[in-house]
Simulated assay, not measured.
Amino acid sequence: MTTPPRLFDTTQITRNLQRRPQGANFVRDLVLEDLADRLSAYKRDFSRAVLIGPDASSLPQTLFTANGPVQAQRVEAFSGDEFPLLPEGDLDLIVSLLHLQAINDVPGHLARLRRLLKPDGLLMAAFVGGESLTELREAFLAADLQVSGGASARVAPMAQVRDAGALLQRAGFALPVADVETHRVRYATPFALMAELKALGAANPLADRPRRFATRTLLATAAQTYAERDADADGRVRATLEIIWLAGWVPHESQQKPLRPGSATVSMKDVLKNP
Rank of each mutant, 00 (worst) to 15 (best):
R115S: 13
E33Q: 13
G201I: 08
H99D: 10
E196F: 08
S79K: 01
L197D: 04
G149E: 00
G129W: 02
A125P: 11
Q146D: 11
L116Y: 05
Q146C: 12
V177L: 10
G149R: 07
M268T: 14
R216N: 08
L133K: 09
V50I: 03
A222D: 06
L175C: 00
R15I: 03
A174E: 10
L145G: 02
A56Y: 03
V161H: 01
A174S: 00
A178K: 01
T240A: 10
V185A: 01
A233Q: 11
A203C: 15
A159W: 14
R184I: 08
T240L: 11
A247M: 02
P176S: 02
L219M: 07
S57D: 13
S263Y: 00
Q71D: 12
P261H: 14
Y187S: 06
M1H: 09
I13P: 15
L63P: 09
N16C: 15
T240P: 04
D163P: 03
A72L: 11
D163Y: 04
Q255P: 04
L98P: 02
S263E: 06
V177E: 14
A239V: 09
G235T: 01
A174M: 04
V75W: 01
P5W: 03
T62Y: 02
Q71K: 15
P119I: 03
V177Y: 13
Q169K: 12
S132T: 08
Q18I: 10
L85S: 14
W249Q: 11
L35R: 02
L17I: 06
D208V: 07
F83V: 12
R184P: 01
L93D: 06
D90F: 09
M268S: 14
T215I: 10
T10L: 12
L193G: 15
E253I: 11
A102K: 14
F213W: 09
Q101S: 10
P84I: 12
P251F: 06
P261N: 09
N104Y: 12
G165R: 05
M194P: 01
L63D: 00
N67G: 09
A264N: 08
L30A: 09
L116K: 09
A159H: 13
L30P: 03
L219Q: 05
A143M: 08
E138R: 01
L59E: 06
P54L: 01
S58K: 07
A151P: 07
A239W: 07
P21S: 06
K273G: 06
L246E: 02
R74V: 03
P60T: 04
E131L: 12
A156G: 11
I52E: 04
L85K: 09
G235W: 05
V128Y: 13
R115Y: 10
A202F: 15
R114Y: 07
L136D: 13
R20W: 06
G235V: 01
L97Q: 03
M268Q: 14
G129D: 02
R236G: 00
K43H: 13
L246W: 14
S152N: 01
Q160H: 15
E82Q: 11
G53M: 06
F64L: 10
R38N: 02
R48P: 14
M194E: 04
G201Q: 06
L32R: 02
T265E: 11
F173K: 03
N16G: 05
S57M: 07
M124V: 03
A227N: 10
V250T: 15
M1W: 12
V266S: 03
